[in-house]
């Protein structure tokens, strides 16, 4: 057994009285629930690095250990909700870029900004440092996806050739009208709607049908939402450290069985679709 179990330190679980041998068996069963076609590049499209304001944390070393233990080739990583003293995420973006530099074959760096706080400068700095995309969290940073500042940020990211990953779950506000308005102003945006868009899935699925570069990630998504989508519109993600790889792989396996995905579809969901959105670069 590795030192980590379900994304946690196994020794901590053991000291808490957990049956770690049983948990290891469950974790292996979960991983095997998705049949990974030979030669598939497996990419986790949703990982937070750093220490979030809510206490969740993940280091680059622990992420790479989790990737190794779960057969994941790469991860798209961006800062946790730690905007820093200036509120512009420049320090935490720098730490993610540094982690990607230390693990260039494993970590694909995205930057994170607050559209209202020095976003353009932060994005320019991140782009110069090798960022490949943008993460936005309308709930944490309290902005509207269709607001002028956010539209400008998405426009800038699109001009840079970046996909934009949006938090799209666990909020009260209807997301369908908001993203409709955003996409009317930036129709060529490449959007990754996190959590299967569970915050407003039915409306977002209808919207996405009209925009081929809008996809959904599987991180902490709901199975009924995923099986209703075309698999080419789905990218694998975990939301580490809020989710874990075994549970996320189990979700893809369940969706593949229920929806009847073939090997090509599974290969796309697990990695091909996100690499295509990133421009095919490795």
């Amino acid at each position: 057994m590795s030192g980590r179990l379900l994304g946690q330190d196994a020794s901590v679980l053991r000291s808490a009285g957990a049956d770690v041998d049983a948990l290891a068996g469950i974790e292996e069963w979960a991983r095997r629930s998705v049949v990974v076609p030979e030669g598939t590049l497996v990419v986790d499209a949703h990982v937070h690095l750093g220490v979030d304001r809510d206490g969740h944390k993940l280091s680059a070393a622990d992420l790479v250990a989790d990737l190794d233990a779960n057969g994941i080739d790469r991860a798209v990583a961006f800062p946790a909700d730690e905007p820093g003293p200036g509120g512009d995420f420049r320090e935490s973006n720098g730490r993610v870029l540094k982690a990607a530099g230390a693990h260039p074959s494993r970590i694909i760096p995205f930057c994170r900004v607050d559209p209202a706080v020095g976003a353009e400068a932060a994005m320019d700095e991140a782009q110069a440092g090798g960022a490949r995309g943008l993460k936005l969290h309308p709930v944490a940073q309290r902005f509207a996806p269709e607001g002028d500042e956010c539209v400008a940020v998405v426009r800038r990211a699109t001009d840079l050739g970046w996909p934009v990953l949006f938090h799209a779950g666990f909020g009260a506000r209807a997301l369908g009208p908001a993203f409709t308005a955003l996409l009317e102003r930036v129709p060529d945006a490449r959007l990754i709607l996190a959590h299967g868009g569970r915050g407003d899935h039915r409306a977002l699925a209808v919207l996405a049908a009209a925009y081929p570069d809008v996809v959904f990630d599987t991180s902490i998504a709901a199975l009924p939402d995923l099986v209703s989508l075309p698999p080419e519109r789905i990218v694998f993600g975990t939301d580490r450290p809020y989710g874990d790889h075994a549970q996320a792989l189990h979700l893809v396996g369940a969706a593949a069985r229920v929806a009847g995905w073939d090997a090509t579809a599974v290969r796309g969901v697990l990695g091909g679709n996100i690499m295509r959105l990133l421009g095919g670069a490795s």
Partner: peptide, 13 residues
């Protein structure tokens, strides 16, 4: 916290 997170994983599965 590790227990909560592991239990959450099992519950979601």
């Amino acid at each position: 916290e590790a227990v909560r997170q592991a239990a959450l994983s099992l519950c979601r599965m």
